[in-house]
């Protein structure tokens, strides 16, 4: 409390504060730009939700492939390892550039060139690699005895996975998965580099360029916080809830 108070006093008494207040925290500017930014933010939210669904499904498939033991699946198992290593190792922004500008440059017929689809693909590929690893950690954390018991009662391998292993694995990785959602929700701004209009950060930037005032960016940040803070509290609640389950 003391530290926060001291910090506030320091900022508010600093010689540049009146200028900063005007360029970052102008109430008039906020009122003016907020409707635009909010509308644009709705695009971010939709983008986030679509990409998230793809990431959840795709990451699960990659994790399942990585954890199978069937010798026949060795080649695609190696492929999934390669995918995770490569896509988790490349900065997401770089990936957005590579896919967003690289794919259209190939001039292949039938391949989408829409910046929205390519940007979404780049995000999905990047986050799919993270989420696959989260799922995998969950799957391997389920005790071996559970698989034994599932097989002993006459389930096939895939039934054991579906009814016994996965339900327990997914419950355990709920909090880390939500953590990745929060991160993805913020990283949607990265696709703005592809020149997508109607994206919140970009809209705020355009507003900023028009008025030489940074307040629209604060408006955008406010929008993000309205989503990410409730998500973070959900993570906290889930973490407490699964503390008992992970025994």
């Amino acid at each position: 409390m003391l530290v926060l108070g001291g910090l506030a006093a320091l900022i508010l008494t600093s010689p540049g504060w009146p200028v900063v207040r005007e360029t970052f925290f102008s109430w008039d500017q906020f009122k003016e730009s907020f409707p635009d930014v909010l509308k644009a933010f709705w695009f971010d939210v939709r983008m986030f939700m679509v990409v998230e669904v793809v990431v959840l499904a795709f990451g699960l498939v990659v994790a399942l492939v990585r954890t199978t033991r069937a010798p026949a699946l060795f080649p695609i198992r190696m492929l999934s390892v390669l995918y995770v290593d490569v896509f988790r190792g490349i900065p997401t922004l770089l990936l957005v550039y590579l896919i967003g500008f690289g794919i259209p440059a190939l001039e292949l017929s039938g391949v989408p060139t829409s910046a929205v689809i390519l940007g979404g693909t780049a995000l999905a590929l990047s986050y799919g690699a993270y989420v696959a690893e989260v799922y995998r950690a969950g799957i391997v954390s389920v005790h071996r005895g559970q698989r034994d018991a599932a097989r002993a009662i006459g389930l096939t391998e895939s039934q054991a996975l579906r009814h016994v292993i996965l339900p327990q694995a997914v419950r355990r990785v709920g909090p880390p998965l939500l953590n990745d959602f929060i991160s993805l929700q913020k990283d949607v701004v990265l696709i703005s580099v592809l020149g997508i209009t109607g994206e919140a950060f970009r809209t705020a930037l355009i507003d900023n360029a028009a008025s030489f005032n940074y307040t629209p960016l604060i408006a955008a940040a406010f929008c993000y916080l309205c989503v990410t803070i409730p998500l973070a509290r959900t993570v906290d609640r889930l973490s407490v809830g699964t503390g008992g389950l992970a025994r």
Binding site: H143, G145, Q146, D148, A149, A150, A152, I153, G154, L155, Q159, H163, V164, P167, Q168, R171, L245
Partner: peptide
């Protein structure tokens, strides 16, 4: 099993039924 190996995410009834319904 020695350590029971019951399925912790299912209630008692479902633990017992899983093999009959899915397996058999």
């Amino acid at each position: 099993f020695q350590a029971y190996n019951l399925f912790p995410h299912l209630n008692v009834l479902k633990n017992v039924m899983l093999g009959s319904v899915q397996g058999q």
